[in-house]
Amino acid sequence: MFYKSATAIQEQVIEWRRHLHQYPELSHEEKETRAFVCRVLDDAGIAYESMKASYGVIGIIKGEKPGKTVALRADMDALPIRETNDVPYRSTKERVMHACGHDAHTAMLLGTGITLQENKSEIEGTVLLLFQPAEEDAPIGGAQAMMEDPAFLQWKPDAIFGQHVWPDLPVGQIGVRDGAMMGNSDRFTIVINGKAGHASMPHQTVDAIVVANQLMSSLQTIVSRNVNPLDAAVITIGKMTGGDRYNVIAREVVLEGTVRTLSLSVREQVEKRLVSLVEQVAAGLGAKASVTYQKGYVSTINTSKWANHVREQARLLFGEAAAPDVDPSLAGEDFGRFLQTYPGAYFWLGTAIKERPVQSPLHDASFDIDEEALVYGINLMATTAVTALEQLKGEES
Rank of each mutant, 00 (worst) to 15 (best):
Q204L: 15
A321I: 00
Q294L: 15
K156S: 14
Y346W: 15
P324T: 00
Q269Y: 04
Y23N: 13
P88R: 05
S265Y: 01
P167F: 12
K4G: 15
A287W: 08
E30V: 07
D364H: 13
E49K: 12
V127Y: 02
T258H: 03
S299I: 08
D149W: 03
I190W: 05
L20P: 08
E371W: 11
Q132N: 07
H19K: 07
G238C: 07
G125C: 11
V96K: 10
E333K: 10
Q340Y: 12
E372C: 06
A307V: 03
A388Q: 02
G175R: 09
P157N: 06
A212V: 09
E29M: 04
N226S: 09
E15I: 00
E148G: 11
S91M: 06
V223W: 02
Q340W: 12
E118G: 05
V206P: 01
R251I: 00
P324C: 01
N228A: 06
S290M: 05
M216P: 12
L130R: 01
T292L: 07
A6N: 08
F36R: 03
R18Y: 09
L277P: 10
R18K: 09
A6I: 06
V278Y: 01
Q313W: 12
L41M: 09
I235Q: 00
Y55C: 04
E15C: 07
M146V: 13
L277I: 15
I123D: 04
S121K: 15
A250K: 00
K68G: 07
A53F: 12
Q269P: 04
V270H: 00
A385G: 14
G179L: 11
S185D: 15
L317C: 05
G67N: 08
V291N: 11
N85S: 12
T126F: 02
H363T: 07
D334P: 01
P167A: 14
Y293S: 15
L109N: 03
G142E: 02
F347L: 15
N247T: 15
I190K: 00
V176C: 12
L339Q: 08
M181R: 01
N226Y: 03
I378L: 13
A233D: 00
L153Q: 15
V254P: 00
I378Q: 11
T92G: 02
L79I: 13
P343F: 09
V298D: 04
K305P: 01
Q22V: 02
D137Q: 15
Q173T: 14
A250D: 10
N379G: 03
E279R: 05
T33M: 07
T236K: 10
I192E: 02
A345Y: 08
I160F: 13
T384D: 07
D327C: 07
Y376A: 12
I81P: 00
S366T: 11
D370T: 09
E25S: 10
A47S: 07
F36S: 04
R225T: 03
E136N: 15
A314V: 01
I301Q: 04
G63Q: 11
A373V: 14
V37D: 03
A74S: 14
Q10K: 13
A134Q: 03
E122G: 14
Y246E: 04
E312C: 02
V40R: 03
T292P: 12
L116N: 06
